[in-house]
Computed example of a mutant assay.
Amino acid sequence: MDKIKISNLEVFCNHGVFKEENVLGQKFLVSAILYLDTREAGLTDNLEKSIHYGEICKYIENFMKKHTFKLIETAAEKISMNLLLNWDNLEQIDLEIKKPWAPIGIPIENVAVEISRKWHTAYIACGSNIGDKKKHLDDSIYALNQRETCRITKVSDFILTQPYGDVVQDDFLNGCLELKTILNPKELLTCLHEIENAEHRERIVKWGPRTLDLDIIFYDDLILADDDLIIPHIEMHKRDFVLKPLAQIIPYKRNPVNHKMVIEMLYDLQK
Rank of each mutant, 00 (worst) to 15 (best):
E20K: 14
K66E: 15
F63H: 09
K180G: 11
F69L: 06
E109C: 12
K98F: 04
L173F: 02
M64H: 02
R39H: 12
D268S: 12
T74W: 08
I216K: 00
S80G: 08
Q26I: 05
L85Y: 04
H259G: 12
Y123L: 09
E96R: 13
F28P: 06
D138L: 12
N8D: 15
A75M: 01
A198D: 12
T153A: 01
H15M: 05
K5R: 14
G54P: 03
D268C: 08
V17A: 11
Y59W: 07
L34V: 04
L47D: 05
T181H: 03
F12H: 09
L34M: 06
N8V: 11
L266K: 02
T121H: 13
V23D: 15
M236F: 04
R201W: 09
I93E: 01
I106M: 10
D240C: 12
C191M: 12
L71D: 08
I108A: 06
G131V: 02
A76W: 02
I263V: 15
E10K: 14
I72H: 00
Y53K: 07
G105P: 07
P209R: 02
D2K: 04
I33V: 14
S80Q: 03
N110A: 15
P209G: 05
D88I: 12
Q92M: 13
P245A: 04
L144E: 04
E77D: 14
L84M: 02
F69Q: 06
I195N: 01
V17N: 05
T149N: 14
T181S: 05
K70H: 13
L222I: 09
L84A: 08
I104N: 05
E77H: 11
K154G: 11
D157W: 09
V30N: 00
R147G: 01
L144D: 07
I204V: 12
R201G: 08
E21W: 06
M261H: 06
L188T: 02
A125F: 01
I104K: 03
F158H: 13
I204L: 12
R254W: 10
G16E: 06
E264M: 07
I141P: 00
I4G: 01
P107A: 06
R201L: 08
H52D: 15
A112F: 07
I130S: 08
F158N: 13
D215E: 05
M64D: 01
H200W: 13
R39A: 12
V17S: 05
E196W: 03
K186S: 14
Y123K: 03
H52W: 03
C150N: 10
K186N: 14
S7L: 15
T190G: 08
E264V: 07
R254V: 11
I223D: 07
L224R: 07
